[in-house]
Design a protein around this nucleic acid. Structure first.
Lengths: 141, 141
DNA sequence: CATTGCTCCTCTAGTCGCTAGAGGATGTAG
DNA sequence: CTACATCCTCTAGCGACTAGAGGAGCAATG
């Protein structure tokens, strides 16, 4: 079944851009794949799985370094998964925090936009609120 | 009242780090302030207001380029504020989107963490879900 | 067989918004 | 007078890519 594919095909299948794949190889997140006689990279199914793993983890906002750790964990299935769990939990906390602060932001922006009466800049609440932090409803930041 | 202050004082008052102030000057977001005889920058109250404006806008997530526009708008109070309004609305939409996608992410991470039974990596749901996108509850990304 | 056009290769440099550090001059307190 | 803080300029680095130059190979059509 699984045969070797070109970098373009790997890109299409995994949803990772060609230069990004090369970049991952360059920084050592992925090993250098074997080449054809014409010096082109060839990707086997295992490699594609790793690539898809990375893509998914990146979408979930994990940093490259965290992914590096997760990948090495994945390679040794007998290790306890406490590390993987900790990484996921840390990311969860980050995301929660980020949501909170974005919600505060959204409220702030909402007030700004609401109270803009679309006149001249001189009376614009958007500009005014930006100019004066003390007008913020909450000390969100 | 308003007298001229040093870069360190400006930094303290506006909550913008010293190198960042110099950086803003370098990229032309702020004008080059006058200097003392000993070549030190001096900041007057008007400059400090601009700096505070920038800081607040950055906290609200506006990009430097947007801030550049907002600053020039601020300088001409007779212009209609439609542009400022549009910038704020665009940012609002961005924030909303970001919140949505972070909520999806949070759910995903929550499921991962919940179903990790803290055994070996080989059975770890965290690793497993990352490796297989199709296990995601929703096609959030 | 030749040409066209796509994919691939390497390499360097750019993006954004800072941040860090070197190396040196000046200001302030004890 | 001597510390030490603050200031100056300049260059380089961060993360995670992205863009572009310049060149080679491969597949399909005429």
């Amino acid at each position: 079944m699984g045969e070797k594919v070109s970098i373009g095909e790997a890109s299409r299948r995994c949803g990772v851009k060609v230069p990004t794949i090369r970049y991952y190889e360059q920084i050592g997140l992925l090993p250098a794949p074997p080449r054809t006689e014409a010096n082109r990279r060839t990707f086997d199914p295992g490699y594609l799985r790793r690539l898809a793993f990375i893509r998914h983890a990146r979408e979930l906002g994990f940093e490259i370094d965290a992914i590096r750790t997760l990948l090495t964990l994945q390679d040794d299935p007998h290790q306890p998964c406490a590390t993987a769990d900790a990484i996921a939990r840390a990311r969860f906390a980050e995301v929660e925090q980020r949501i909170d602060s974005l919600n505060a932001l959204k409220a702030e922006l909402g007030v700004m936009i609401e109270s803009c009466r679309h006149g001249k800049v001189g009376d614009c609440r958007v500009i005014e609120v930006l100019a004066d932090h003390s007008q913020c409803t909450r000390p969100h930041h």
